[in-house]
Design a protein around this nucleic acid. Structure first.
Lengths: 354, 354
DNA sequence: GTTTCGGCCGACAACGTAGTCAGAAACGAT
DNA sequence: ATCGTTTCTGACTACGTTGTCGGCCGAAAC
């Protein structure tokens, strides 16, 4: 309309008050520079005069410019995003780990995407990995406490690191928690034995969680080291209900129980109370996790504290080292805070037999 | 080398065994069709013969083709991704909500990105929103229990929905939880009054959480409806420690306490036990949340159960309705399961005064 | 026999950014 | 003055996908 010969679609585009967010081209036009110069300023490249840099920054601020990550990812082939496969669970352990991972990831300048698996679904982990790959991630953290024995297909060059045991992944890709679980379990068991208890029973977690098996193994071997043959463990599912059931079935001669987690310990204590056994006078109980409420239970629970933050940071460090283009994270002291026993009132020396 | 006249960079590219993942062009070449046809097959568009469709699918499978979301987002301007701003917390409530949101989001075909805020940081919410916008999202859910009174800047056309109260957001963007909190609180208070208690004390959550204020208001107005002037509430921070402190300061004449959450109730019970007051014989206690351990505490805790899954699905539905290009979610019954009181053993009729 | 029309397919042009390369300007050393 | 080097800038193009449009084909309608 304004000019007799329509010079093509470009004229239309400029005439149209586009709804699309401003791009580098718009910033460049406003600042009177080329799009490439805007790119240089945005990416902090060298060889841009201070004068132009400021002009560009002003123009970008004025337009509310935000670099388009899709376009950037398209050309670089990098997403600056890491994915996490996690069991969808509001349990204290997994939830804490996830929060810690998000913090560490964003601090490293990467964005963070979770894919939750659904327990019991056979290919859940592989599906979650595929979903993350389809979304575009530069690396994947397996924060999956369940080891279902499946192998992972090749992930098309995207590095994968597992927080904890995982089959089908080479050794160096497996990051074990900072403090050794076995040591913590031994500490708990020895704490009980040193108080005079002659035997320690165990309420385990579900056996397809490697974490549960690790705690069970730690308990069993700690007993054997003292020459004690461990009794058959109760098998639970992390739930208070499982602890409750174990508490009802606990033999009368038992005086000390090590639970795979705090919730289970809560259920156990409940069952013991109902059957007229007092904690810790009659039975000593140790938990695992140190949930916030642990110190305020009746009685306050002796338990093993974990440092999820340290584990998350460590795992992410290992992963980022494998991601090309990720600034190598400064090597911080890798000695993650070990798991350690927190002694409270749910354990006591074996009293005189009534 | 193979041909005397190098026809340009394209020849080089084809000669080079590229490390880049296969694209539609590669699939098209293998299937003997045009790249556009591959696009049609992948997107399930009409007007592709069954014969070609199968050929393309075979070729795509053979190459392990995955559509590049970055390129797609670049041209469509849509990301098929929704972002969630959440307080980074492993508390049972927020964690449950997040898990439910992830499930619902992925089920709707959208990917899911969380940005955690850090409590106490003044512009935390705005920063998290900006981060999500920079990453590219089609909509944002504010699952932020803290209302810090800040207004949100315009989010450049991206719809925002808040799960719970939020200033600076128009009414229709605020999704309140399915069951009314006030009703649940009234139910809890009346449960106690009906058992003969003449007064109900309250241990509140932190006042900058709207959730805490809502529960406190519900408690106060329920008392006033019965003509009882509520006593000054204790103010906590959701932690067991706060409940413990309240329990120590609880006046001797108090016989019933309504706590803002279960953890606080746990701390309260602990303090009461230590000062020689039994629950529920001397003091009845009601919690809020129904954490998994609630039924197994000593005594089992009377509390208010929440349905996070329903709240999450409802909130996401509202958001997706505002997102252009999102298939309108089938209108499921919006009557989310209300919060309801679960009566257990921590509450009992007021006994004879000793 | 011609026209019309819906099904089917491909050429081409974007999308917003970063890599490559060429060239201009400024400067010091010959 | 001439050259080389460093600093700075912009034109051009590729990245992998989708939107637009036009062409071809066979069947139905004139």
């Amino acid at each position: 309309m304004t000019s007799p010969d329509t010079p093509g679609p470009a004229a239309f585009a400029s005439a149209d008050a586009r709804r699309r967010p401003p791009g580098m081209t718009d910033v460049a036009q406003l600042a009177g520079v080329s799009q490439k110069t805007v790119s240089r300023v945005v990416n902090n490249e060298r060889y841009v005069s201070e004068e132009l840099r400021e002009k560009v920054l002003r123009a970008a601020a004025e337009l509310g410019f935000r670099p388009n990550t899709a376009a950037r990812a398209l050309i670089t082939g990098r997403f600056r995003r890491i994915g996490v496969v996690s069991l969808g669970s509001a349990l204290f352990g997994p939830a804490s780990l996830l929060v810690a991972l998000e913090r560490a990831t964003r601090a490293a300048g990467f964005s963070f995407m979770v894919a939750n698996t659904i327990e019991g679904q056979p290919d859940a982990i592989q599906d979650a990995v595929d979903w993350l790959l389809a979304q575009g991630v530069d690396g994947i953290i397996l924060s999956e406490p369940i080891d279902e024995g499946q192998r992972l297909r090749a992930a098309s060059g995207v590095p994968i690191v597992s927080l904890g045991h995982a089959r089908g992944l080479p050794e160096e890709r497996v990051v074990l928690a900072g403090g050794r679980t076995a040591e913590a379990c031994r500490e708990a068991v020895e704490h009980l034995l040193d108080m005079g208890h002659e035997q320690v029973w165990h309420v385990a977690g579900p056996q397809h969680w490697w974490d549960a098996r690790e705690r069970q193994d730690g308990w069993a071997s700690a007993l054997r080291e003292r020459g004690i043959e461990p009794p058959p463990p109760f098998t639970g599912d992390w739930s208070p209900a499982a602890g409750y059931a174990a508490g009802q079935a606990l033999p009368p001669e038992a005086t000390a129980v090590f639970c795979a987690n705090d919730d289970t310990a809560i259920g156990l204590v409940r069952a013991l109370n109902e059957t007229g056994r007092r904690v810790p006078e009659d039975v000593s109980v140790v938990g695992f996790d140190d949930i916030p409420a642990a110190a305020y239970l009746s009685p306050p629970l002796t338990t093993v504290r974990q440092d999820f933050e340290a584990d998350a940071i460590h795992g992410l460090d290992v992963l980022l080292r494998l991601v090309p283009g990720a600034a190598a994270p400064e090597t911080r002291p890798k000695a993650a805070a070990p798991r350690r026993l927190v002694v409270r009132a749910s354990t006591a020396p074996l009293g005189p037999v009534l």
